[in-house]
Design a protein around this nucleic acid. Structure first.
Lengths: 343, 343
DNA sequence: GCTGCTTCTGTGAGCGTTCACAGTAGAGAA
DNA sequence: TTCTCTACTGTGAACGCTCACAGAAGCAGC
């Protein structure tokens, strides 16, 4: 067979070249390219052979011009830049989405909107139709961007439950409350009774739910809630450190802490070490996420695994469905307790 | 020709609408859009007003179809996926490039090629002309992808010096050797004489240069090189940990270690702690990168700062220049010693 | 007057696709 | 025969833009 050579090639082959090569018309080649219905087996075979021989690749711009679709989707992160630097979760999510989209041969456009200006610029870009849909990640939800995009009719899926409940925006989230429950039950099963908590950001459902799960299990166990044992954080490492210091001050007899993210738990571990507590003997520490931070900590962190791979693949699935005309959907995925050395 | 109005407005305005609105022709609008040369001030003003009034945004697909440019560039990472999860440097680079491109209103397509299959798929995608150029990140260079893209005539800039020296590929890198020299001189200035090293991957210039700098300074200082003091790593946290264990076994009298990346230095710190060494009293530890890992370590890491923000902006600058027809270029940026608690 | 030059403007063509539609061939039914 | 139906194929027109080119207007020099 003829090898596809890379001689003095200047312009790439067009659908016309393929048609001529296969001895058929443009229309037939186009039909083969898009599903292959109403094409005779012989023609399809000839076209495929011609495509292989010429090294033809469809010109996405020409296709987009007529279909009105861009066949690309945006990954929009509306977070201050430090969090993107610091938090491994974004990475995992970004990678998962990129791969899930790659399976559909859809490129991902990375959009980082740390500032107000960037947010405006990107919103305009998106609403101009340059992407077919948006995967939106933002831990402080109640984000105006989400509503703007939804109102502009842009297919949209958020990671984590958005704050406006009935707002008709798709989202995929882990079962935060259930995960929190599992962790606190685990700490109770180890005989701990003075269990503190460093919460996540409480302006978003994720943080609220994890706190609720903690309170729920303690109440069930007949343990009175002690507000000195709860401090709030914002998912950053620094807030974990500060939170632990505050807890030690307020409740020196604390024998366990449930921390709403692994990154914060890293900060908690530092503070506890500094205070001379040994882990898990004096204080057991439980995290949330099972991010790479959990393994990088010493001791390695017992944590609640969020199924990030499934979260990202579900986000993509729901988004593509929505682009295909389906209604917005909410997906809640189960979490899993991962026991390591810190408890 | 009064047929364009038909019920509720669905389609976005085109250049034609703007032209009619401004009372000029398509050509004039196009000229205003692309630089505004050969346009009278009056016409330019009318066009801009019309653009504002109609909310017109150029259709990039139509433009790309005729110009042949896609006005987007790819960020290609050819690394096994674990490294992308683990290493904060990629994040910083990715963010820097995204922002530098955003300033030119150029979207970034994220391309992750962990496997051979993905590499093939993405190479085809790129050579099909779907992006105007590629920012290539790969710590194990000598990457066949780089040569393939270069041979296909795709504008390309690598992060870090590629292994084939005269290979006519643009790259931007920090001055690895000089950084290593600074760090080792710093350790010497603290009175340390038994200085170990955990190297980076030695199949790429970055790792080799850092080792060379280390050897150079020791030799200058009249210290005999001791091969028991050098172990090789691969930039991963685990390899740092293993490396430190090996060093402790081979040279228990070691009083300092220079580690070729912060992430590996984290591993080194763990191993040293476990062995009961106090830092920096017993062993001083110096890292490389000044990534977020340096601050997340305890004690905080003395390290060599790579100017990632400048690296990314230079990569973008060089790439855009190359797309504009300029020759490939190499840029070497200076590093800086950052003193913290680990030395 | 004609010629040349500069600055500005409008027009037709065409980029590579998809889509709607018209057309063909062959099989089966009336 | 003729008509209908199905399975397939080819063709012209878009899609929204840029580019080359032609032309207009103004001005100067001869």
């Amino acid at each position: 067979m003829t090898m596809s050579q890379s001689g003095g090639r200047r312009k790439p082959p067009t659908i016309h070249d393929v048609a001529r090569e296969a001895g058929v018309s443009r229309g037939t080649v186009s039909r083969v390219l898009n599903g292959g219905h109403y094409v005779s087996p012989a023609a399809a075979e000839a076209v495929n052979a011609a495509i292989r021989r010429t090294g033809y690749v469809v010109n996405r711009h020409a296709r987009s011009l007529i279909t009105g679709r861009s066949d690309s989707i945006g990954f929009l992160l509306t977070e201050p830049q430090e969090r993107f630097f610091e938090d491994p979760n974004f990475n995992v999510l970004l990678r998962g989405c990129t791969q899930a989209l790659a399976a559909h041969d859809i490129p991902l456009l990375l959009m980082l909107a740390g500032t107000q200006d960037e947010r405006r610029r990107l919103t305009r870009y998106i609403t101009a139709g340059h992407v077919d849909g948006v995967l939106l990640v933002s831990s402080h939800s109640g984000d105006p961007v989400a509503e703007q995009l939804r109102d502009a009719g842009v297919p949209l899926v958020m990671c984590g439950k958005p704050i406006g409940v009935g707002s008709k925006v798709s989202y995929v989230a882990a079962d935060d409350r259930d995960g929190a429950r599992d962790m606190v039950r685990h700490l109770l099963s180890l005989g701990r009774r003075r269990i503190g908590m460093v919460t996540g950001a409480l302006d978003a459902p994720g943080g609220v739910e994890r706190l609720a799960g903690y309170q729920e299990v303690l109440t069930e166990a007949g343990i009175e809630l002690d507000e000195r044992l709860v401090v709030s954080g914002d998912y950053s490492r620094a807030s974990g450190e500060a939170g632990a210091e505050l807890l030690l001050e307020r409740a020196p007899d604390m024998d366990a802490v449930f921390v709403a993210s692994d990154l914060m738990a890293q900060g908690v571990l530092s503070a506890l070490h500094r205070a001379g507590r040994s882990i898990p003997e004096d204080v057991a520490v439980g995290g949330f996420d099972d991010s790479s931070a959990a393994l990088a900590s010493s001791p390695e962190l017992t944590t609640i695994r969020q199924p990030y791979d499934r979260i990202s693949s579900e986000m993509v699935r729901v988004l593509l469905a929505q682009i295909g005309g389906e209604d917005p959907a909410a997906v809640i995925l189960p979490t899993e307790l991962v026991k390591r050395q810190s408890t």
